[in-house]
């Protein structure tokens, strides 16, 4: 008798506890990073895969250190893009780091490269610059820093795959004109300063035609030595 009463009391308590939990889950947003970064997704895609807008980059799978550096640079205004500067202005470092980790750990498949709109000659010039550089003009090859597979290196060097030509050329332009800057020594500003507009078009077009490699992950830190100092990737 007593035992039964105690058992039914326990059932009631359990139901009440269950109800409470259910009520709480329905009245609060999910306690996940995915729900917290919904502000990012209209431009960068649900998993950071990018969207149809060619000026908004893919974030997924880039090294977390690189993404974190960009978030810090947008927050301080060092990297200028008002919608991003505005969104991040009052977010603390640990939260930005968590956002960077979130997108770095997502691995949606890389998109199929779109057919290029430039001539074969221009593509060949882009390939030459990206893979060999032009020592006479102090232009290092893209692969010398971004990796032989162009997948980047942990923690701070981004991969260059899955980006559209329009985005790459806009970023190289931003470096040339100083609206995108990074920690000193700002290696990309030095490189972009040596590029002509024709170089930018060619490199951006060729990079955008690259197919997805078997392993798109950034290589581990220290896999190769950078050819010159870079504030974003301290040795």
């Amino acid at each position: 008798m007593f035992a039964r009463a105690a058992a039914s009391a326990a059932v009631i308590v359990t139901i009440a506890a269950f109800d409470g939990a259910a009520a709480q889950t329905t009245s609060q947003p999910p306690d996940t990073m995915a729900a917290r970064v919904e502000a990012c997704t209209p431009c960068h895609g649900n998993k950071g895969e990018g969207t149809s807008d060619v000026y908004f980059p893919r974030l997924a799978g880039k090294p977390a250190g690189y993404l974190y550096n960009q978030l810090l640079a947008f927050r301080s205004g060092r990297r200028k893009y008002p919608p991003m500067n505005y969104l991040l202005e009052f977010l603390p470092d640990p939260y930005l780091a968590a956002m960077a980790e979130y997108f770095a750990s997502e691995h949606p498949p890389l998109p199929q490269p779109a057919p290029s709109e430039v001539s074969k000659d221009v593509l060949a010039q882009g390939e030459l610059l990206a893979t060999s550089g032009d020592a006479g003009r102090n232009i290092p090859a893209c692969v010398s820093c971004h990796g032989p597979g162009l997948t980047g290196m942990q923690p701070g060097v981004p991969g260059l795959l899955g980006l559209r030509a329009a985005y790459i050329s806009a970023q190289l332009g931003a470096w040339r004109y100083g609206t995108r800057t990074a920690k000193s020594p700002d290696c990309m500003q030095l490189v972009a300063g040596h590029l002509t507009e024709a170089d930018v078009t060619a490199v951006a077009a060729w990079l955008a035609t690259r197919p997805a490699p078997d392993n798109p992950a950034p290589v581990p830190k220290g896999t190769y030595a950078l050819p010159f100092g870079c504030g974003s990737q301290p040795n």
Partner: peptide
């Protein structure tokens, strides 16, 4: 148009944000 995040504070260190709809 602009969306936005409330500020990250001691009491709410990881705020939820609203997407900008200007482009959509």
């Amino acid at each position: 148009l602009n969306g936005g995040y409330p500020p990250g504070t001691k009491g709410n260190p990881m705020p939820y944000g609203m997407p900008p709809f200007a482009g959509l």
